[in-house]
């Protein structure tokens, strides 16, 4: 089943293929395991874990927008201990590396979650969530100030027994500065998280109870492509997992072309629950049609 043309090696991660579901769009995999074999995936980015259980925000928590959606779930999760005892245990039956998304409101929380969850046998890397726009404290405030982001990355990196990827927020003035400030300490970057947005109802009031939410889906793909492209120009070697509106194999190719090493599929898992295995199958066919030795032959086409 492994197709050597699609296999990708990244710090901590031996990916059968460069496609994985993005954090928050796949829960912890159990629902999707009823639809297809999770071992088919390159990796799984599980929903954010925090030290304590979080109930999340008030509803409504989602609203559709043109070619995208807003969400303000609020990092709802059962807490890191529960996730390790139940959700991660469940995933052990599958031959797939897990990337654990780590979130918090204080540096100590991030450190504690990172220390614990990086010890799970199937967690092969962490994704440091410094960019969630939907929580009052923590999240995005860590991801919009380069110095804070750097300090947090340093602490989490020291606490983690697996490689740490930092998930960058697009809600910054200069994405390259942010990437540089964490990039020499992190093992890799994931980009991008959602863009802050809002939608009103017919009476002129915000639909989301949180007022603002994170914009995702095909609408944000051009933003993400540009940010990855910019970062790649300054950091030729940092591993980057690209995400933002991926719906087709052409989208995957676009992400590789601007310099991503692998990709994550987010919102489209809701539109088509079978999108990840569909893309993986289509990529296998397309690399053969394109007559290339490896999918990374497409990497960097936008600037080379």
């Amino acid at each position: 089943m492994t197709n050597s043309k699609l296999a990708v090696s990244l710090p901590g991660l031996e990916l059968k293929n460069p496609v994985m579901p993005a954090s928050g769009c796949f829960s912890f995999g159990e629902e999707f395991s009823k639809l297809y074999d999770l071992s088919k995936l390159g990796a799984i980015m599980i929903k954010a874990a925090t030290e304590e259980e979080r109930p999340g925000n008030k509803t409504p928590r989602v609203a559709e927008t043109a070619s995208g959606m807003l969400n303000a779930i609020g990092l709802q999760n059962p807490g890191v201990d529960h996730i390790m005892e139940h959700e991660l245990k469940f995933l052990e039956q599958y031959d797939v590396p897990v990337i654990a998304n780590v979130a918090g409101t204080k540096i100590e929380d991030y450190v504690s979650v990172a220390e614990k969850i990086s010890g799970a046998p199937n967690v092969k890397a962490l994704e440091l969530n410094i960019s969630c726009p939907n929580v009052k404290e923590g999240g995005i405030q860590f991801g919009t100030d380069p110095e804070t982001a750097r300090k947090l990355t340093y602490e989490v990196k020291n606490a983690s027994s697996v490689p740490v990827y930092v998930k960058l927020s697009p809600n910054v003035t200069n994405i390259v500065d942010m990437a540089k400030s964490v990039g020499d300490m992190a093992d890799g970057l994931t980009m991008i998280n959602t863009l802050v947005g809002m939608r009103l109802d017919k009476s002129g009031r915000p639909i989301l109870a949180n007022i603002t939410g994170g914009l995702s889906g095909p609408a944000i793909k051009p933003v993400s492509l540009n940010m990855i492209y910019q970062v790649r120009q300054h950091m030729p070697d940092v591993p980057i997992i690209g995400m933002g509106g991926i719906a087709t194999t052409d989208d995957v190719f676009d992400y590789l072309s601007v310099g991503a090493d692998a990709v994550a599929v987010g919102t489209m898992n809701f539109t088509d629950p079978y999108i990840c295995p569909t893309l993986i199958d289509e990529l296998a066919t397309r690399v053969n049609t394109l007559n290339i030795d490896h999918i990374h032959d497409l990497k960097g086409r936008a600037y080379s």
């Binding site: 769009c25 629902e31 999707f32 509803t59 989602v62 969400n71 779930i73 709802q76 639909i207 629950p273």
Partner: peptide, 23 residues
């Protein structure tokens, strides 16, 4: 009814509160 994302339990958009305190 509530605004839904995925429809099959993944996205946590359509939660409500049970009387026993759980969601």
């Amino acid at each position: 009814e509530e605004r839904m994302g995925c429809g099959f339990g993944v996205c946590y958009a359509c939660v409500c509160q049970r009387a026993d305190g759980t969601q």
